[in-house]
Amino acid sequence: MGILEVKDVNKRFGGLQALGDVNLSIAENSVHAIIGPNGAGKSTLLNCLVGKLIPDTGSVMFDGQSVLGRKPYEINQMGISRVFQTPEIFGDLTVFENVLIPCFAKRDGAFRMHAYEPMLAERDLVAEAEAMLDEVDMLAKRDMLASYLSRGDKRRLEMAMCLVQQPKLLLLDEPTAGMSRADTNNTIDLLKQINAKRDITMVIIEHDMHVVFSLAQRITVLAQGSPLVEDAPERIKGHPKVQEAYLGHAA
């Protein structure tokens, strides 16, 4: 029994079958990659996991509880964090505040009107946020406005915001999209580090095979909305069905 169990999930957009009978079991503390050509339904699947979309049929169980019908913020409180394709951060806030907010959210869950600033120090939230920034090597940029960061730094910040919540499951939607080779390698190192240090399960959606094969312990190939193969990375590389899906019949 994995930490995330997806059973017979179907999703239609009008005439388009975006997901057809997707079954997926993700083992705890593993790094699981989902790959597939454009339009294979990777993002749709991810959106079904975090409550942005509701599947037509099927079930999604996380840690023994169904996520279906819950709002994104409720699902986050269950322990699922998400890194977006384009980094979603609070651009008008400083880097430090960006990390402070998830610290709060983790402690107090739903709405609370925190009225006093000194409370932050009392509750060690400042230290916690700074430790997290240090871990992703961004403490020097603590007081910069987040919108001024470079793309790579924004990505690191977003990951810091997710990690400081100590999620059980981290979903990464193309974490290296649009990054230079150097930034990509930095991100891979960071993710490896995170995975080694914490008890965390990661699901990565990625186009860049270099990233997938350096991180993933298990890979699912999606094609036309259905899982084609699920296997260990070394066996995915030469799999005939995968080559067919990516390169067409001629290959």
Binding site: K71, P72, Y73, N76, P102, F104, M161, Q165
Partner: peptide, 12 residues
């Protein structure tokens, strides 16, 4: 600044 991120940070 970003309501989407807020939602995915566990805040309504």
């Amino acid at each position: 600044s970003n309501q989407q991120r807020m939602n995915y940070t566990g805040l309504n």
